[in-house]
């Protein structure tokens, strides 16, 4: 199979970042409301990584324990969106959200639900932005708490064999007292990957100025 792009052009990257920033901003608003304190979300980094090298994005080893939320989506393109953290960061985040003074050794059922809600807000916001702006039609499923070694977590998407690339989006949750970083990972199958980049290109064309000043294999920043 033809693997069209394991890398994005600068222009594409900038475009996706822009799309996501809009959604992320909405998610931050929702989170602040839920938590009763200012939460801001930023995306300092975004990149496509090949499946084999993907682990490095979230954890140093494929066997490192990660925790987070997974949501399936389908429509114009289909796959899974994950919000992943290092296990300890995940706990910290949940406890910061719940203002919990008595941490248990593991996440409780209700804490898992709460984390699922957070993931749901963030992932829906990302998916919503992409769908709205790219004019795509995407349906999302309910969020699912996931926990385990990174490579095992990826397998729960049921797409591991088809994955060509993962889209890594670094997300930082900044709260008044701390900053916790995680990753939004989009897992596309190959067909969806192609459709996604096509949609991004279409979007770029729709807003590209007529004099074509930014044409080129690797464009400058918008």
């Amino acid at each position: 199979m033809n693997l069209p792009a394991t890398t994005l052009s600068g222009l594409q990257e900038d475009a996706i970042t822009e799309l996501l920033n809009i959604g992320i901003g909405q998610a931050a608003g929702a989170l602040s409301e839920i938590m009763g304190e200012e939460v801001s979300l930023t995306i300092p980094l975004m990149e496509f990584l090949p499946n084999t090298g993907a682990a490095q994005g979230v954890s140093t080893e494929p066997s490192d324990i990660v925790a987070g939320i997974q949501q399936r989506f389908e429509g114009t393109f289909q796959g899974a969106a994950l919000l992943l953290f290092q296990e300890s960061d995940c706990m910290q985040l949940v406890r910061a959200l719940l203002h919990d003074t008595v941490p248990l050794a593991e996440l409780s059922e209700l804490e898992e639900e709460a984390l699922a809600e957070i993931g749901n807000i963030v992932l829906n916001a990302c998916l919503g932005s992409i769908a709205n702006i790219l004019g795509s039609s995407i349906q999302s499923s309910l969020p699912l708490y996931i926990h385990g070694k990174f490579d095992e977590v990826l397998k729960t998407t049921d797409m591991a064999t088809e994955i060509s690339s993962l889209l890594y989006i670094r997300v930082e949750f900044q709260m008044p007292t701390r900053c916790i970083g995680g990753y939004v990972v989009f897992v596309f199958d190959t067909v969806s990957m192609i459709r996604f980049t096509e949609n991004v290109d279409n979007f770029l064309r729709s807003i590209k100025p007529p004099d074509n000043v930014l044409a080129g294999p690797i464009g400058g920043k918008l």
Binding site: I34, G75, E113, A114, A116, N120, A131
Partner: peptide, 25 residues
């Protein structure tokens, strides 16, 4: 209002939403 938004989101965006008991005021 989150439930209202969630209903809206499901109808217009076809997105599923979860509202957990811990965070639901």
């Amino acid at each position: 209002p989150r439930l209202i938004n969630a209903v809206d989101n499901a109808i217009s965006n076809r997105f599923a939403t979860l509202i957990s008991p811990a965070l639901n005021q």
